[in-house]
Design a protein around this nucleic acid. Structure first.
Length: 881
DNA sequence: AACATCACG
DNA sequence: ACGTACGTGATGTTA
């Protein structure tokens, strides 16, 4: 039996656009309407199994209705550019699905569909119309159902004549009369003033049609209603005409041409990849339909190595080869190793861990630097294997880093997403294989071995595609000379770890406990009751209900109790200061005493952080488990935590070196601002210099307040300044903040020019870059939404600065590790904190390192201004100040 | 799992 | 007129 499905393209696209958040691809192409349309199509194809299907679109400006009523659709806001740009994509989508689409100059989709349903009706076909427009209900008949989308496009509600009868008590054609009486604001159909759905239905139940109602106005109950009807006879008639869908449009389409069997999975998945619809990729059948031998019809084959057959496979270990080290767990400092997936042109292997340990040819191949390996996160492999006394050398391409560089906005690329973008083989996500949260467990070995082999194959297939795209983006050097060598430096640092004095932490914990207990008592007394001080909700009730303090700021869920608010409330009540100290000490206890202690490794008695090299949008590193990049320093009480970070060898020292004002120096370089360059070349205190220029005073006249304000302005500049942000930071009015900025820009005109230029360039390209070609896409920079756009503009100003600073210190780290090796030094690099490097140093290398470290850091990259690094040392990280 | 808060550069 | 500073991660509470 035939089933003909007709889709109202414009209606569905609009619905999808407004129902879904404004998604976009990494290149800035908006895709939410396309995604919604796709979801709907997949659902329709699966659930309705159409034998014939087509999508109709509006076309041309002058719809025939316009000549009858000038204001038709006048009330409709014009289509936003974010939606218009998606219509060509939706057309491509339909082509990829092999679904016939149709439009007719001067007619709307409704009319095309109306005409075709009539034909279908006559031919006795089962027909379904998909739309978001209730007007279309008038097309419903014995053969024709209308499916209205609900909640965007995710659900549909099917209408047959029975449903319309039940819901409205009307025949389908009476829907036209309904619209004629009540009108439709979205189409600017006027209807009769004062008549809404309720009244219109009542009238129609009584009289049946607009014409009958108008003939019987005198009998209608209600004076006002009678009057409205009498005065709007013409309007009602015209409205009915406007609401009537034309069923005689000159549609020259043979419905037989809309026949549908299935889509071509390969074409469609290409399109999905381009749209970055990762979750949808897994939902479609990738094999080409019916022709029996699709492109990847060959089933995936892999072999499992055993102790018995291992030697037979020794010559399969080639160069290059893709390697994936399957581990059970996310933290590779602790994870057991399950085995190795290996892949090359015509071979996929899995080597279980117990086989690998004993297989000499394998461990030799693995440790042989001349045997090139392609990996996913070589740092993870290197450190994870090092914990089991296994060496991996010769890592020559890392798809994890490559994919991050190509799109830094999607942080932490996973192999299944990389595979779906760059390879043919399908890789299941780890979550899918292992289960998540409490349900996580180690699957059967055959599942694991296939999973690991899939991953290796995905790496193997992705490399050529990634290489091509890196070349296109001029990122080969960034990968080969920066990120890849850095990952091996980071591997050393992570595996080395940093010694933490557990007893020192415990002792600090005991002291904190006593203080917190005392504070808790005080706070309960001041509040007159006990409550959970850690609960913003309960605290809010005490402060703002019981004590009746003023609410200065609100969060989504209630009045804000954040530190900046509490500081302003301090004069009102003594409880505030106690709470601020409680918060401060509580943070130290939970995060830095208890949290850090938990991370001390049982084997090494050190903490081994994980540096994430593919997380941040700017190119910085991040650090987890534990995060060693946010150890307290600003407040003395917290700073003491650093006393627990000590050298791992007797008689050694901690040495720390940090860049001075690296971001402003980079701004001076890339903006070319003469004044800023001059300031740095003369070795001036930059905040004092800014204060002199902005306030127009001499160096001696700069007060500490002026310097503090100038410093805040400098920060603001780096962040992509706004008067509001600065005013919040300095607690001044917006106007005053605006004046500061204006004066700053008149003195540093080059900076102003650069900021304008970079935003302009970002709008043109859709991305910004750092000095070393690191790239960040800014899809929102052309948004019509003020907030999104402003945010993207600030990001456009900040990312080249923050990102170039990240480039510079990464270079310095590589040089530093090389220098240590070349000079045969025993000193070890342990930590990176964005603009700071921390080392442990034997006493007899102290003098060498005090010179060497700043030298290397300062010469990492030559700029128009000098780079400066300060160095300090002591018996703990605390003392290296 | 989301939110608020706070530690760092 | 619109409402926010840029980039992170860990913790405790609450829904």
């Amino acid at each position: 039996m035939s089933h003909f499905v007709l889709i109202d393209g414009n209606s569905i696209a609009n619905r999808a656009f407004y129902a879904l958040p404004l998604l976009s691809t990494s290149a800035g192409l908006h895709t939410n309407a396309v995604l919604g349309f796709t979801t709907m199509l997949l659902k329709v194809l699966e659930e309705m199994k159409p034998t014939h299907i087509m999508v109709a679109f509006d076309a041309g400006k002058v719809v025939f209705r316009h000549s009858e009523y000038a204001d038709y659709k006048g009330g409709r806001a014009k289509t936003p550019p974010e939606l218009s740009e998606q219509f060509p994509l939706i057309r491509e989508l339909l082509d990829a699905f092999s679904i016939k689409r149709f439009e007719l100059e001067g007619y709307e989709a409704d009319d095309i569909i109306g005409t075709l349903t009539k034909t279908a009706d006559e031919q006795d076909w089962k027909t379904t119309v998909i739309t978001g427009d209730k007007d279309m209900l008038q097309l419903v008949s014995e053969h024709v159902s209308v499916a209205l989308t609900r909640k965007g496009v995710s659900e549909i509600e099917l209408y047959t004549p029975q449903e319309i009868q039940e819901k409205y008590g009307l025949k389908p054609l009476q829907i036209i009369d309904l619209k004629g009486l009540m009108g439709d604001t979205s189409d600017n159909i006027p209807g009769v003033p004062g008549v809404g759905e309720k009244t219109a239905l009542k009238l129609l139940h009584e009289y049946g049609s607009v014409e009958e109602v108008l003939e019987n106005i005198d009998r209608v109950s209600g004076k006002k209603l009678q009057e409205n009807l009498r005065e709007n006879v013409d309007k009602a008639k015209m409205s009915k005409e406007l609401a009537t869908i034309l069923r005689e449009a000159p549609v020259e389409l043979d419905v037989q041409e809309t026949g549908y069997t299935s889509y071509d999975g390969v074409t469609l998945s290409e399109f999905f990849k381009r749209m970055e619809f990762k979750s949808l990729l897994s939902k479609i059948k990738v094999e080409a339909p019916d022709d029996g031998q699709a492109a990847n019809a060959a089933p995936f084959q892999y072999e499992v190595i055993s102790a018995e057959n291992a030697e037979k496979y020794a010559d399969k270990l080639t160069s290059p080869m893709a390697v994936y080290v399957e581990m059970d767990g996310d933290n590779y400092h602790h994870s057991p190793i399950v085995g190795f997936g290996l892949s090359a042109d015509d071979v996929n292997l899995f080597v279980p861990w117990d086989v690998a340990k004993e297989w000499k040819a394998f461990s030799q191949w693995l440790a042989d630097g001349s045997q090139e390996k392609w990996t996913f996160d070589g740092k993870r492999d290197t450190v994870g294997l090092a914990w089991h006394e296994l060496d991996i050398k010769g890592i020559n391409f890392d798809v994890y880093l490559a994919s991050y560089l190509l799109n830094a906005t999607e942080s932490n690329p996973t192999l299944d997403s990389i595979a779906s973008q760059y390879a043919q083989v399908r890789v299941r996500s780890d979550e899918e294989v292992y289960g998540k949260g409490a349900k996580r467990l180690l699957p059967e070995m055959d599942v694991l071995s296939e999973h690991a082999a899939h991953k290796a194959a995905a790496i193997w297939q992705s490399v050529p595609v990634l290489r091509e795209q890196l070349t296109e983006n001029q990122m080969n050097e960034l990968l080969n000379d920066l990120e890849a060598p850095l990952s091996m430096v980071l591997a050393l640092m992570e595996k080395q770890g940093i010694k933490v004095n557990r007893d020192r932490l415990t002792q600090m914990g005991v002291e904190l406990d006593a203080k917190l207990e005392e504070l808790t008592k005080q706070i309960y007394e001041l509040a007159g009751t006990t409550f959970n001080i850690n609960s913003p909700k309960q605290l809010g009730e005490i402060l703002f209900d019981v004590l009746d303090l003023p609410v200065l700021k609100k969060t989504k869920t209630g009045p804000s109790t954040s530190a900046d608010v509490l500081e302003k409330l301090a004069p009102y009540h003594p409880i505030i200061d106690a709470i601020l100290i409680f918060r401060q000490l509580g943070k130290l206890r939970s995060t830095y005493i208890e949290g850090l202690t938990k991370e001390i490794h049982s084997q090494s008695s050190k903490v081994h952080t994980l540096y994430n090299q593919a997380t941040t949008a700017t190119g910085r590193l991040s650090s987890t488990e534990p995060n060693l990049q946010n150890i307290p320093i600003r407040m003395e009480e917290g700073r003491k935590i650093r006393e627990a970070f000590i050298p791992s060898e007797e008689g050694w020292y901690m040495l720390a070196a940090d860049y001075s004002q690296i971001e402003l120096r980079i701004l001076a370089h890339i903006s070319g601002d003469e004044n800023l360059i001059d300031a740095f070349r003369n070795g001036m205190d930059i905040h004092t210099r800014t204060a002199m220029d902005v306030f127009g005073v001499s160096e001696e006249q700069v007060t500490s307040l002026m310097r503090r304000q100038a410093k805040a302005v400098n920060f603001g500049i780096v962040y992509g300044i706004s008067d509001y942000g600065l005013s919040q930071n300095l607690n001044i009015t917006r106007k005053e903040a605006g004046d500061f900025i204006e004066r700053y820009f008149s003195v540093f005109a080059g900076v102003k020019q650069w900021m304008e230029d970079i935003v302009k360039q970002a709008k043109q390209d859709g991305f910004v870059t750092t000095l070393l070609h690191r790239r960040r896409y800014l899809p929102d920079i052309r948004s019509s939404n003020f907030n999104l756009r402003s945010f993207a503009e600030r990001t456009a100003m900040n990312t080249p600065i923050q990102g170039t600073a990240a480039d510079v210190i990464k270079l310095a780290m590589i040089r530093m590790q090389e220098a240590l090796q070349e000079k045969g030094l025993k000193s070890r690099m342990l930590l990176q904190v964005h603009d700071e490097l921390v080392f442990e140093v034997p006493q007899d290398e102290l003098e060498t390192m005090k010179k060497l470290v700043p030298e290397v850091m300062e010469s990492a990259l030559e700029l128009q201004v000098p780079l400066k690094a300060d160095v300090n040392f002591g018996h703990s990280w605390y003392d290296a100040k």
